[in-house]
Design a binder for these strands. Structure first.
Lengths: 210, 210
DNA sequence: CCTTTTTATAGACGGATGGTCTATATTGCG
DNA sequence: CGCAATATAGACCATCCGTCTATAAAAAGG
């Protein structure tokens, strides 16, 4: 991960100066880390590059602009998160409502592991949506809509399993979950504690119609 | 509010050149508008000054730094919001739970009035808390704690009025409200609609133990 | 009424940072 | 060897925070 270049030279570098060849993927990973911490506007290209030892001049070889770079990060994050969501919400070894608990536990662990510095990319960008490039907003809406549908299906399974009232509107309940969840993640960063996430999920589950 | 100076002149201005004498207060008001839109880091002093026609040189006569300015804005916002909260939550003409509805209706109206460009200052700053000056974080926590207590008292009144179960933990319920509420405000900005706020409050009130 | 002090503004300036672009050096291939 | 593709260095320009000097009007004082 650490590339201490001996001395800066122009031109294409010698055969194998960097351990990992896939610079583009490294930039996306590094960018994801920085953007989940600081959001889009506050994240400088420089700091993202420095983390992986890529010089500034190289950036526009891999991405035509910061905006395009951001989109690549969003896609990467979307795939990562959808995968995590499925891993829990489709886990047949747990009852539907317990799958939600498992997702929450996973998220709590992730927050603590990064010392509450990183939040949810969707939440971060959502807060600064006014100043974001055109198109980002639609991606954020689509992503939340996707998450909502995955959760709604899990709630429907809960209905089938008798964990949830047949009268419940699963779509609306799933919508409410993500609305509040983003608030809980934000608050957890503020408090530097998983407590807000616990309070939210307890209130949410306790309030579900049985 | 609009000060179109005929021509810029140096020196102390004549007796009443600007409609409002209190330049400092105007700066805080303008700053509040900008910060509720864009957050702290993304808000440039210049753009705040331009809105009220105050030249840059004057800024540091009133505030010693951007950080101090931000603190003044937070205090202003805190007073404004606490006042709004009391106006609704202590309104004896409504039942306790209906007071919460009234607050929500007020907030919805405010969001729509500003075309969903402005959010909650606490939510905005909370999201970028990692990069904020020292001390801001504590203010945000204290402020949310204050709001929580005001709401908890209202919920206790609801218990007394028979609108809420005697077994309910009002402190915890109030905590959960603000956790989710900040998420709802954020989402409303993203969707440019009050719908998320409606979904959240309905889910919250429906889930309260009766 | 004249002088001095205080108040408040005008706007340039510097250092830092951030996004973007151009020139360039090296590699790999034919 | 020659040429296109690759990856880099560093310049460039805009912006932003914060500072500084100059200046003009009001307020104070005699």
């Amino acid at each position: 991960m650490n590339h201490s270049a001996a001395k800066p030279r122009r031109g294409r570098p010698p055969k194998s100066p960097r351990a990992d060849q896939d610079t583009r993927a490294e930039l996306i990973r590094s960018g994801t880390e920085v953007l989940t911490e600081q959001g889009f506007a506050a994240s400088g290209i420089d700091s993202i590059l420095k983390r992986v030892g890529v010089p500034k001049g190289s950036f526009y070889y891999y991405f035509s602009s910061k905006e395009v770079f951001g989109r690549a990060i969003m896609e990467h994050y979307g795939a990562y998160f959808a995968n995590k969501l499925d891993r829990h919400l489709l886990n047949a070894r747990l009852s539907p409502l317990h799958r939600i608990d498992a997702f929450v536990a996973d998220a709590k662990e992730g927050m603590a592991r990064h010392d509450f510095r990183r939040g949810c990319l969707v939440g971060n960008l959502g807060q600064e949506v006014v100043g974001l490039p055109e198109g980002y907003r639609q991606w954020l809406r689509d992503t939340l809509d996707d998450w909502q549908q995955r959760l709604a299906r899990c709630l429907e399974e809960a209905q089938a399993a008798g964990e949830l009232s047949r009268d419940a509107d699963c779509g609306r309940l799933a919508e409410a979950f993500w609305i509040g969840w983003e608030g809980a993640v934000m608050r957890a960063r503020l408090e530097r504690s998983v407590h807000p996430m616990e309070v939210f999920i307890r209130c949410y589950l306790d309030g579900l119609p049985r």
